[in-house]
């Protein structure tokens, strides 16, 4: 079953700014789907329309076979939103915020209390349930928004840059939590993020949006295999005075102890190491020069704007 279908979605804001241009997109049930794009590409507008915070100019939104315009209650009840910015009442307690959200979905108080306890415990906020929300730390506020979005147990959870501005430890724990609810509870997740490492690590499928259009929509692995080259930085065991001239790989010396190597699809790391060993160069460690998806993302955007295919 399709968790989300967008058909011919268009949005033009007052003043003529076109945010979405005939967007068609489907997300399968159980997917962990990444929506990537630069600032102003239309990601937040798209999420706003799906979550009813933005009115569309034209098109159709279907959530688990429920048309958002015709079967509004069913469609909205299937959907949970974790917005980019904190949007809860600063004067209410953590528990009140979660209970009220359950109430808006028609969940009776008794069941709402059970669920609030469950999700607040899972997100490490149970001890803070009586704290007024404005006194929480930034990380706690992020987790509160996730608990609030889950209290009605949606089948589709949309997170708009959920880890923006959070520390590495919290980001990793949120990744774990999202993986778990996706795998164990079967919640379909749509994630927008600027951290491409996050998308590469979490998402099975990715769509890239730019200037209001979907310019790429495929699975993460296929996307990554389309990169024709990988760049690596090699740390050397012994300092190197001069780079041997006879190397067949495209190697650049960054410092006496560091080399940068570009490896093409048809080349192998085994061949590289063999060649370096023959030249008497010992490698102590190696890392990707940059995030692979980031590289691809930039090339796709550039290609789309130039009207050419930049990914070989």
């Amino acid at each position: 079953m399709k968790a989300l279908t967008l058909e011919h979605l268009n949005k033009t804001y007052k003043g003529g700014v076109v945010a979405l241009r005939d967007v068609n997109l489907t997300v399968e049930e159980g997917d962990f789907f990444g929506l990537l794009g630069p600032n102003g590409a239309g990601k937040s507008t798209m999420i706003g329309i799906i979550s009813s915070l933005v009115t569309k100019t034209a098109g159709r939104v279907v959530v688990f076979d429920h048309d958002l315009d015709r079967h509004t209650w069913e469609a909205k009840a299937s959907l949970g939103l974790v917005p980019q910015e904190f949007n809860f009442n600063n004067f209410e307690t953590v528990e009140q915020i979660v209970l009220n959200q359950a109430g808006y979905y028609g969940i009776r108080r008794r069941l709402a209390r059970q669920r609030a306890e469950r999700y607040l415990r899972e997100l490490g906020l149970w001890e803070k349930r009586r704290a007024v929300s404005r006194t929480l730390s930034g990380g706690m506020k992020r987790r509160l928004m996730i608990a609030r979005a889950l209290v009605h147990e949606p089948r589709l959870l949309i997170l708009d840059e959920p880890t923006a501005g959070v520390d590495i430890e919290l980001r990793r724990s949120m990744w774990e939590f999202l993986r778990r609810i996706n795998q164990e509870y079967g919640v379909t997740i749509i994630l927008t993020t600027h951290y491409l490492e996050e998308a590469e690590s979490l998402c099975r499928n990715i769509a890239i949006i730019d200037e209001g259009r979907i310019i790429e929509n495929t699975d993460t692995q296929s996307l990554l295999t389309r990169l024709s080259t990988h760049d690596f930085v090699l740390d050397l065991k012994h300092p190197l005075e001069q780079l041997p001239a006879k190397l067949t790989f495209n190697v650049r010396q960054l410092s006496p102890r560091q080399l940068e190597v570009e490896i093409h699809k048809h080349q192998t790391l085994t061949a590289l190491f063999s060649e370096l060993a023959q030249a008497g160069i010992e490698v102590s460690s190696m890392k990707n020069k940059s995030n692979r998806l980031e590289e691809l993302f930039l090339r796709l955007l550039q290609g789309d704007r130039d009207g050419s295919s930049a990914v070989a």
Partner: peptide, 17 residues
């Protein structure tokens, strides 16, 4: 206040008519 703090969005995303 709900508009200003944006927590009106809690209700707007919900199915509440």
């Amino acid at each position: 206040g709900a508009k200003f703090q944006r927590h009106v969005e809690e209700i707007l995303v919900s199915p509440t008519p």
